[in-house]
Design a protein around this nucleic acid. Structure first.
Lengths: 97, 97
DNA sequence: ACAATTAGTCAGAAAAACATGACTACCTAA
DNA sequence: TTAGGTAGTCATGTTTTTCTGACTAATTGT
C-alpha cells in the first residue's frame, strides 16, 4: 500500500519531465498559452522544443488545443480539468517550505 | 502570485528527475535502501546510474547516507525529514485519480 | 586462504533529449 | 502584391543522460 503512494507521482513526474514542460504548464495556469508567445516569453527556448513540449502536454491531456476562429485566427492551449486538478497539489507543496 | 505556485514544484520535479530517482525514492518510503539491493530490486538498472542517483538524492537532502557498523558493515540511505515532508503531497496526488 | 558480498569508480559507447536553421502554408494588413 | 504574423515541420548537429564492462578495495563467510 505504501509503495503505491508515489505511483501517481511517478506519472506526474514523467508528464512534466523535460526542460520546458514545467514552465509551459506554469504559464498555462495563468491563462491560455500560444505557440509564438511562449517562444517569446520563455527565454532560451526554440520552436522545435516548444512544439514538442506542447504536443506532449496535449497528449497527456494536461492541455487542450483549441483553434480560435477570431480576428487573427490562432491556436490556444488551455489547462484541462486534469491539469486544473494539479493546482491543489502545487499549492500544498508551497506550504511545505 | 499564481505563477509562484509551481516554483516549489519545479524544484521537486528537478530533484526527482531522471530515470531512476523516482523509483529509488519510492522504495525509500518503505524503509532504508541499500546500493546492492536497489540494483537487484530495480530491474534494468545498473551500478553507475544507481550510484549517481543516490548521490544526487543525498546532495538534495532527500536521503541521508549512513554507515551501519554492524554485522555485515554496510551503508544505508534513509528518508530525511525533507523527504518525509513530501509524503503528504504524494498522498494528495493519489486521491485525485 | 579463497570466494563472495559490500559499495562503489572510471572510461568509453550508445541512446535520448535538445538546439539550429531552413523551409512550408495560411491569414491579414498595407 | 508584398511583408509580417500565425503555427508549425524537417533534417541535421550538438549536448546530456544513460549504459556497459572493467576495475578497486574493504569486509565477511567457508
Amino acid at each position: 500500500m505504501k509503495s503505491e503512494k508515489i505511483c501517481e507521482a511517478e506519472g506526474l513526474l514523467k508528464m512534466l519531465s523535460g526542460k520546458w514542460k514545467p514552465q509551459i504548464f506554469r504559464l498555462a495556469l495563468d491563462g491560455p498559452v500560444r505557440f509564438n508567445s511562449l517562444l517569446r516569453q520563455i527565454k532560451g527556448s526554440n520552436k522545435q522544443s516548444i512544439a514538442v513540449a506542447l504536443k506532449e502536454l496535449e497528449e497527456q491531456e494536461l492541455l487542450e488545443k483549441k483553434v480560435v476562429k477570431l480576428k487573427p485566427l490562432h491556436i490556444e492551449y488551455n489547462l484541462s480539468e486534469k491539469g486544473k486538478s494539479l493546482i491543489a497539489v502545487f499549492r500544498q507543496l508551497e506550504n511545505l517550505s
